[in-house]
């Protein structure tokens, strides 16, 4: 078992005495080489789970294990690709990618060689000397993926890495990420709020419920790779996931707009009672 969460709870202090219960009794297991997506509406705590595994945050109660070892802080066996990439704007692409390698006490030459391999894998071999701002959003995200891959982590954590990209770029990166995953066999935890993205990429989709966040349902995606969004398995799963997700959405919206809010109009409750059909 690569990643294991046991009875994890997380609350954040809210105001002086109150606290916000974000995660409730999360049990989660990811096997080596598995590609798992965490799917849920915004604010359900999926990024919090990722931060707990990354060691950037610690659980209020419960345990997080990676490689059967308890997570105590950030470590290079779990590298994160953030939504905004998180490239350092004051370093060029090469320096960004070698950043972690040099910290591993690797020689500069070796690090640059490895970084070049990583950059080639994401098709950015010619941009080693460019600065992040000179690249498009998709290219920046590719660099971020390369930076994470060269670290050769046990687990690759991806926090909505393609959410800020345009649709075309995202589709291309979906293909590439699948290829990379098949080639490297990394364990990947992918966070997204996009159903189709989760279904196209992963082996297993974990659907989260909100407030407090919990894992509601698990779907296994047994479609052939490379995935095709119009594959009947995926289309069928999409409707099923959508149905589950709608309930969650309604719960969130009700909390935000009041109890009388409904996602769907109901013929029974919303009929205009004064209308008797007298115009006939």
């Amino acid at each position: 078992m690569k990643v294991k969460l046991e009875q994890v709870n997380k609350s954040f202090p809210k105001g002086k005495t109150d606290s916000l219960h974000v995660l409730h009794d999360i049990d989660l297991q990811i096997e080596a080489g598995e590609f798992v997506s965490l799917l849920g509406p915004s604010g359900c705590g999926k990024s919090t789970i990722l931060n707990l595994i990354a060691g950037l945050d610690s659980p209020t109660s419960g345990e997080v294990y990676v490689n059967d070892k308890k997570v105590k802080g950030p470590g290079t066996d779990r590298v994160v690709v953030f939504q905004q990439g998180g490239l350092f704007p004051w370093m060029n692409v090469m320096d960004n990618v070698t950043y972690g390698l040099l910290l591993k006490k690797m020689s500069k030459k070796e690090a640059e060689k490895k970084a070049m391999e990583g950059l080639r894998m994401v098709h950015l071999g010619n941009f080693a000397l460019a600065f992040p701002h000179e690249l498009s959003g998709g290219m920046q995200q590719r660099v971020a993926i390369a930076r994470a891959l060269v670290m050769d982590p046990d687990v690759l954590l991806m926090d909505e890495p393609f959410a800020a990209l345009d649709e075309q770029t995202r589709l291309i990166l979906h293909q590439e990420l699948q290829e990379i995953w098949q080639k490297t066999g990394k364990t990947i935890l992918f966070i997204t709020h996009n159903i189709r993205e989760a279904l196209t990429l992963s082996e297993r989709v974990l659907l989260m419920s909100t407030r407090p966040g919990a894992i509601k349902k698990s779907f296994r995606v047994q479609a052939a790779r490379p995935r095709n969004p119009s594959d009947s398995v995926i289309v069928d799963l999409e409707t099923r996931v959508m149905k589950e997700l709608e309930e969650e959405m309604e719960k969130v919206l009700k909390e935000e707009f009041g109890d009388d809010y409904r996602l769907k109009t109901s013929a029974v409750r919303d009929r205009d009672r004064d209308y008797m059909g007298d115009h006939i």
Binding site: A54, L56, G75, G86, L87, F88, L103, K104
Partner: peptide, 12 residues
């Protein structure tokens, strides 16, 4: 925070 977190996960 993004930069800090990115650096910390890379081992800094």
């Amino acid at each position: 925070n993004l930069y800090l977190n990115a650096a910390r996960t890379l081992g800094s």
